[in-house]
Amino acid sequence: MSIADKIAPAPREVRLAGAVTALPGLGLLVFGIVLPAASGNSDAPRNNVLAEAGFYVVFALAVLGCAAALAMGHTWARSPGVVTALLTAGVGWYLAGPSGLPGPGVPTILLGLLILVLLFRQPSRAWALGQQPGESEEEAAERGGLEGRAAEREKKERN
């Protein structure tokens, strides 16, 4: 068993999705930090700019937390990861289309799609369902999926 498997009991796709999900989080963090300095000559009230920057920083920290949780193999982070991927692809679409900036827009769309593909590949789905080797998705669902896997783990720990 590799050290990566010991640290994060998740498939490689999920750990990679966590690393890739960190990119939009880092971008938001940088944007939230740079925004107040860049709007120094703006007509907007300073409080509005600081509130907006604060929102971006808080949102960035949430995305980075989700990315870290995916990288560490926490199943709860898959849904926020999917939402982050959809938002990233949407921002990319807006950049490429209505804003007329295909240079940053197309890679942003591709980044969001990459996260979605990684989170919906078969090993990622099997991990999220708690699927055992040789077991179908239907059998995992009948067994109780993640809850069944947790119950089996607790039973083994007691014995």
Results as ranks from 00 to 15, higher is better:
1 M>I: 06
11 P>Q: 12
14 V>H: 03
15 R>V: 09
17 A>C: 07
17 A>Q: 02
17 A>Y: 00
25 G>Q: 02
26 L>G: 11
27 G>R: 08
31 F>P: 01
32 G>A: 03
33 I>H: 10
34 V>M: 15
34 V>T: 13
36 P>E: 07
39 S>Q: 15
42 S>I: 07
46 R>N: 08
51 A>F: 03
52 E>A: 12
55 F>H: 05
58 V>H: 01
59 F>A: 03
60 A>G: 06
60 A>I: 05
61 L>N: 00
62 A>S: 10
64 L>V: 09
71 A>H: 06
82 V>A: 10
85 A>H: 00
87 L>M: 11
89 A>C: 02
90 G>T: 01
90 G>S: 09
91 V>R: 00
92 G>K: 01
100 G>K: 04
103 G>Y: 13
104 P>N: 09
107 P>K: 03
112 G>K: 02
114 L>V: 07
115 I>P: 00
118 L>P: 01
119 L>M: 02
120 F>L: 09
121 R>C: 11
122 Q>K: 10
122 Q>S: 13
122 Q>A: 09
127 W>M: 07
127 W>I: 02
128 A>I: 03
128 A>T: 05
129 L>Q: 03
134 G>F: 02
134 G>P: 04
135 E>V: 04
139 E>W: 06
141 A>L: 06
145 G>D: 11
146 L>W: 12
147 E>R: 10
147 E>P: 06
148 G>V: 06
153 R>F: 05
154 E>C: 04
155 K>R: 15
157 E>N: 14
159 N>M: 10
